[in-house]
Design a protein around this nucleic acid. Sequence first.
DNA 1: TAGTATTCACTGCGCGACGCAGTGAATGCG
DNA 2: CGCATTCACTGCGTCGCGCAGTGAATACTA
Lengths: 145, 145
Amino acid sequence: MESRRYLAAYVLFNQAVADHLGLHPTDVQCLSLLTADPGPRTVKQIAEMTGLTTGSATRLVDRLERGGYVVRAPDRQDRRRVLVTPVPERIARVTAVWDDLGPAWQSLLDDHSEAELEVIARHMRRAYELSHTQMQRLRSTPKPD
Amino acid sequence: MESRRYLAAYVLFNQAVADHLGLHPTDVQCLSLLTADPGPRTVKQIAEMTGLTTGSATRLVDRLERGGYVVRAPDRQDRRRVLVTPVPERIARVTAVWDDLGPAWQSLLDDHSEAELEVIARHMRRAYELSHTQMQRLRSTPKPD
DNA sequence: TAGTATTCACTGCGCGACGCAGTGAATGCG
DNA sequence: CGCATTCACTGCGTCGCGCAGTGAATACTA
């Protein structure tokens, strides 16, 4: 019950951040994941981590590129691929929102001990891993429709 | 970093559940919140807890009613209002998905002690509360556009 | 009590994100 | 050297959504 409200709140919060930046929740989600590990990604990788088709991922990159958040560059190893790289100075505008709201979150974390943070992080990590196997199971199960 | 991936995974998972049921992520989100406290809600309350406008909330209830997940009933106290009540037997189809996936999640929780679960729950509860105040702050801050 | 303002659910309208299916280019394989 | 596969990309149609307006019901005020 607690986690339901927690996750629902995150969806709303993500939406609010997106509105504030004039972006879409999907775009913010994508930028969040891109900056988590700022290495260049292919369009297909972006499609996988956002759950979209490659076609929609192309449009997503179109929007982000038009907004100046990322740049496209051809891959020298595989000329079919396109490498999408975030633009740090533009991304900073996004993280600025987080920084503004950061202290409150920081104090929330500071109230926990190291051991407690480890417990929380472990739970999230395991839930993250489990969700992937569960999603595969969902997709292989016939639909109840 | 851990929470980013955790939350991103939830979005994908929610999407997968929605696809599996032939619904939209927003609809699943709404049903999840409705069943969290199965009391009847007005359309406006649904709009608030999903972050939609009242107009879109009307369409949302339309879809859910057409699918048989909820029923509309007039409010006797205030005849402007419409009370939306979930249909248990139909909702069961949704929770069946959770039940099927439940044991794995249960074992995830069982690996934690009571004290650890309390730490996690407390963190989620506080993050939930904080997100609301942060969203208000976001909305009152001028957009950087 | 009469008149105004507010709140509720609802409805056309247009926008735009998305999935689907197909395209061409580049790569890997036998 | 063919053939299948994979990649990013592109029209097309669908549909969820916000916006602005409607009528009905309620709350407020003189």
